[in-house]
Nucleic acid binder design. Structure first.
Lengths: 199, 199
DNA sequence: GAAAAAAATGAACGGCGTTCAATTTTTTTG
DNA sequence: CAAAAAAATTGAACGCCGTTCATTTTTTTC
C-alpha cells in the first residue's frame, strides 16, 4: 500500500474512532466537524477528502455499532437450539442491555435524520438484515412448518416490537415502560406472541 | 381581551398553523424560522416574542398532532366494550392508519431531537398519557383481576410494541415490515400477547 | 531530480437560530 | 386628550455550523 493510501486509511479510521467517542459521550446531535478535526489533528477540509460529508462519517460509526450488536446477539444466542423460545427472549434482553448500556451510541442508529435524497449504502441495510437472521433461526425451529417468507415476516414483527419497547423505555420524554419492567414485559411479549402463533 | 393580547394570540395560532403545514409537507427537519415569518407575514424577531424558541413552537404543533391522534383513537374505540380484544386491534390499526397517512406530521412527534436540558412541558406528557388510557380501558376488561398498575404496564408494552412496528414499517431505511403486512401482524401481536396473559 | 498527481490547508461562503438596540404601537396615567 | 410608560415589532447583526475552494505542501511517476 502506498504511503498516501496508508495515511488516508489511517485518517479514515481515526475519524470514525473520534466520531464514535463523541457520539458515545455527547450524542450524535452534537457531533461537529471542527471538533473531529481537532480530535484527530487534521484540518477541517481534510475530513471532506476522506468522506463525502458528515452523514457518511456517521454511517461508518453506525456500521460499527451494528457490528457490535451483531456480536452481542451472537453471544446471547448461546444454545438457542436447545430452547429456541428462551433463546429469543435472551436475544431481546441482549438488545435491551446493549441499548441501555450504550444508549447514545445505539440511538445514533435511529436518531440521526439523513437527508431524504441521501441514499443509504447497502452495507448498512445488510447489517440490519444480519441482526434479523439471529431471530429467524430459532423462529424457524419453533415454527418448523412455516415458510421462510413467513418466518422473515414474523422476525421483523418481533424485532420491531422489541425495538419499540426498548426505544420508548429509554426515552425520558415518552410514555415507555420503566426500565425495571422491561425484561419481564419483553419475555411476556415474545412468549405470548409466539404462543398465539402455535402454528 | 386587550388588542395587544388578541394580536399576540392570533400570531401564536398563525405560527403553529404555518408550522403544521410545513411539517406536513416537508418534514420537521426542514422547518425554518425565516420561512415561518414569511408565511404568516411577521418579522423574524416576532416569532421570539411569542415563543421561547423554535423547539417550543414545534411542541405546540406536536400537541395538536397528539390531540388528533386522540380523536382518531376515540373514534376507533367504537364498541370496545362489546369486544375489547378486537377493540385493541382496532386501536392499533387506527394508530397505523394515522401514521401512514400523515407520516411527516406523526414523525415530528418522535423525530425532532429537543436539547437534553430543554424540559418538556407537562401537557405534552399528558397528551401521551391520554392515548394510553384508550388502551387501558379495554385491557382492564380483558383482565378484570389485574391491578391497575399492572394494566398500565401492559398498556405501555402494547403501545410501545405497536409503535415500534409502525415506526420501522414506515421507515424505508430500516428492516421494518412491508406495509401490506402490518395489519395482519398487528392483529397477531395484540391477540397473541394477550393470549399469553390469559390472566 | 523534475514534472505530474494527490492530499492538506484554513479562510471564506451561505444558511441557520437567536439576540438586541432602535422604532413603532398600545396602554395607562393624570 | 395628552403625555408617559409599557409592550410589541423590526431587521440588521452575531455566533455557529457544514461545506467549498484556491493555494500550498507532499507524494508519486518517469
Amino acid at each position: 500500500m502506498s504511503k498516501a493510501t496508508e495515511r488516508k486509511a489511517k485518517l479514515h479510521a481515526d475519524l470514525v474512532d473520534a466520531a464514535e467517542t463523541r457520539i458515545a459521550s455527547h450524542g450524535v446531535a452534537s457531533l461537529r466537524a471542527r471538533d473531529l478535526a481537532n480530535d484527530v489533528g487534521c484540518s477541517l477540509g481534510s475530513i471532506y477528502n476522506v468522506f463525502d460529508d458528515l452523514h457518511t462519517l456517521i454511517l461508518h460509526a453506525n456500521m460499527r455499532t451494528l457490528d457490535r450488536i451483531d456480536k452481542v446477539m451472537t453471544d446471547a444466542a448461546g444454545d438457542v437450539e436447545k430452547d429456541p423460545l428462551n433463546g429469543l427472549v435472551g436475544l431481546a434482553w441482549a438488545y435491551f442491555d446493549f441499548a441501555d448500556s450504550q444508549t447514545r451510541t445505539w440511538r445514533a442508529l435511529f436518531d440521526h435524520a439523513f437527508p431524504e435524497d441521501h441514499e443509504l449504502p447497502d452495507w448498512i441495510y445488510q447489517g440490519q438484515v444480519e441482526l434479523l437472521q439471529h431471530i429467524e433461526q430459532p423462529l424457524q425451529q419453533i415454527l418448523p412448518d412455516a415458510q421462510p417468507e413467513r418466518v422473515q415476516l414474523i422476525a421483523r414483527t418481533l424485532f420491531s416490537s422489541v425495538h419499540g419497547i426498548v426505544e420508548l423505555s429509554l426515552d425520558d420524554r415518552t410514555v415507555g415502560l420503566p426500565k425495571e419492567a422491561v425484561r419481564d414485559q419483553l419475555r411476556l411479549l415474545v412468549c405470548g406472541f409466539l404462543a398465539g402463533y402455535e402454528n
